[in-house]
Amino acid sequence: MPSHSPAPLISLTWTDHVTGTKGYLVVDRLVRGVSSGGLRMRKGCTLAEVTGLAQGMTMKEALHFDADDTLARYVPLGGAKGGIDCDPRDPAAYGVLVRFLRALRPYVENVWTTGEDLGLGQDLVDRAAEEAGLVSTVQAVYPLLEDEREARRRLSDAFAVTVGGIGLDELAGGCGVAESTLAALDRAGVAHSGTRVSLQGLGTMGGATARFLSEAGLTVVAVADVKGTIANPAGLDVEALLAARDAHGAVERGALRAEDQELPGDAWLGADAEILVPAAVSYAVDAVNQASIRARWVVEAANMPVLPEAEALLVERGITVLPDVVVNSATNAWWWWTLFGDVGPDAEEAFRHIRRSMRILVDRVLERAAADGCTPRAAAHALATDRLPVMADRFGWYG
């Protein structure tokens, strides 16, 4: 992460007075007085994790900043993140979520725009926010809008759009991950057809990524969820698996075909595939289990899924890691493109904008990596480092 500041602007720990559960908010940076970053809920979530995620959000925003684009209405924001150390399946989890948002209401109202992340769907976050007395989880950005009423209507309409039974808001991020993958394949001269994919996670990000890659002609040969790995060397029926998911992305095994195999949970790592997509949890790939990976590319659809020591070992083995700050950034960007009016509440328009923007960004990162002789992650950091001072000069460090 670029050393743009010695410490986050805001870092706080909340303790639930009912359950003792810990929650965290880190605002790494403000731009025009506002920051952006989702709220996750998982058992074991820590302040250090949330801090790293907030720094990553600063990078994602900076990577989508183009100082020369005078037509763009969306101006990237600062980076932030929230996290709650709780199992989202715990019966007490919803009450914890409501109390967290109620306690942090002044931050959500004024400086932190947030939304769904690991363990939390947008519908649940919106319901809890309303119960906590919030107008919206993105209301801090309203003063920056030209026409707040029209912008809110546009975003609401976009969230009502579905494609093949899945909401546009759930598909946007996966579209970006898939396009990042396709851009890497194209630069390497690798055909889409016949390229195999293994994914960890079939939730919002993993499910959408699987759909778009399958539609592009790739073959999904393995998918892992909380119950284990589902595999088929000839290819899984992605649409059938998506239709058989529960609210947490777990697949009902009754939907499997006779030729589909049920394997241990970590079998996705060593699948015979060119593309490996960790799309579920942070820290999924460590220095030990990375030895199982046979893929040519690891595409980080989740936030921080590959530990630094694991990435160094993968690079030594000639495996390229496409970093989270690049490939999964379309989820956040799509919200703002829609709210600010760069795209309308239309799926095809949104997908075109996402594909164009992500391909430009991935190409730029890979070109920088080739020119500097470094990893794509280091190249992304370098690009963000170049852009942050320009943003600071234009908007100030703290808004």
Score class of each variant (00 low, 15 high):
residue 253 R to S: 13
residue 72 A to F: 03
residue 160 A to G: 11
residue 242 L to I: 06
residue 104 L to R: 07
residue 231 A to N: 04
residue 317 R to N: 02
residue 154 R to M: 09
residue 169 D to P: 00
residue 18 V to K: 10
residue 23 G to M: 04
residue 167 G to K: 13
residue 117 D to S: 08
residue 149 R to V: 08
residue 216 A to I: 11
residue 3 S to D: 09
residue 16 D to K: 04
residue 73 R to K: 10
residue 306 V to D: 09
residue 24 Y to F: 15
residue 47 L to R: 10
residue 319 I to W: 03
residue 20 G to T: 06
residue 218 L to P: 07
residue 277 V to Q: 00
residue 15 T to K: 13
residue 24 Y to Q: 10
residue 165 G to S: 07
residue 98 V to M: 02
residue 291 A to N: 00
residue 364 R to V: 08
residue 121 G to S: 12
residue 105 R to I: 03
residue 199 L to T: 11
residue 382 A to E: 14
residue 24 Y to W: 13
residue 66 D to T: 08
residue 169 D to S: 13
residue 245 R to Y: 12
residue 137 T to K: 06
residue 92 A to R: 14
residue 44 G to V: 08
residue 219 T to F: 09
residue 269 L to S: 15
residue 93 A to M: 07
residue 63 L to G: 09
residue 391 M to T: 05
residue 380 A to M: 02
residue 387 R to A: 14
residue 256 L to E: 03
residue 19 T to R: 02
residue 107 Y to K: 04
residue 391 M to H: 05
residue 31 V to F: 00
residue 225 D to C: 15
residue 330 A to V: 05
residue 318 G to T: 02
residue 223 V to I: 15
residue 80 A to E: 11
residue 221 V to T: 12
residue 234 A to N: 14
residue 298 V to W: 08
residue 73 R to C: 08
residue 50 V to T: 13
residue 214 S to F: 14
residue 375 T to Y: 07
